[in-house]
Simulated scan of single mutants.
Amino acid sequence: MSEQLLPGYHIRRGSTLDRSLLVKFMQRTYQDMFSNQDFAHLEQTVKQYFSSDTPLWWVEEEEDKGAGEQKNRNFSSAPTPPIACLWVGNAIDQVRGDRHAHIFILYVVPEYRRRGIGTALMRYVENWAAQRGDRQIGLQVFQSNTPALNLYNQLGYQTQSLWMIKFLSAEK
């Protein structure tokens, strides 16, 4: 089942059958920022965390009626490829102990950016989380991802903690 997300775009719930497509979208997400890396390991992340308890939504461009009629005449049933995805998991607030939604990935294909799709997806997940009783949503964003940081700041998200890392030498 799908519903309109924005004029011209609809959102549909994914399923665990979408595992390989989710991996491809995750790889595209990281390749956009770190183009010289191999992200084959993301398949393990999806294998470990993707389940019916971690909802996935796809955004697809709505077909215009003329194109759909032409498609029917050509007997093609190829689905419209998704242009965005949103994958959400669950986290526990370490201060209060409350369960809350955690956004694993929000990705919009580059040629569809700056059309309000990311904002609409964030509003969608906020409504979804509020309906299930969550009092907050968490996400992690790279400090260098200025467009994403701007979006989240405009939507009222605030830095609560910083994730710090230190690279260790493999030598002993």
Rank of each mutant, 00 (worst) to 15 (best):
M1L: 14
L5C: 01
L5I: 11
P7K: 09
G8E: 02
H10K: 08
L21R: 08
Q27S: 14
M33I: 08
F34P: 04
N36R: 06
Q37V: 07
H41Y: 12
L42D: 02
E43M: 07
Q44H: 08
K47M: 13
Y49L: 15
Y49S: 06
S52N: 12
T54G: 00
P55S: 01
P55I: 04
V59F: 10
D64W: 02
K65F: 10
G68Q: 12
E69F: 10
N74V: 11
S77H: 02
P79N: 07
P81L: 05
P81W: 10
P82K: 01
A84T: 05
W87Y: 03
G89I: 01
Q94T: 15
H100L: 04
H102M: 13
L106C: 01
P110M: 09
P110N: 11
E111I: 12
Y112S: 03
R115N: 07
R115G: 00
G118I: 05
G118A: 06
R123V: 05
E126K: 12
A129E: 00
L139R: 06
L139E: 03
L139F: 05
Q140F: 08
V141A: 08
N145K: 10
T146S: 10
L149K: 09
Y152W: 00
N153E: 01
Y157F: 05
Q158M: 02
T159Q: 04
Q160T: 14
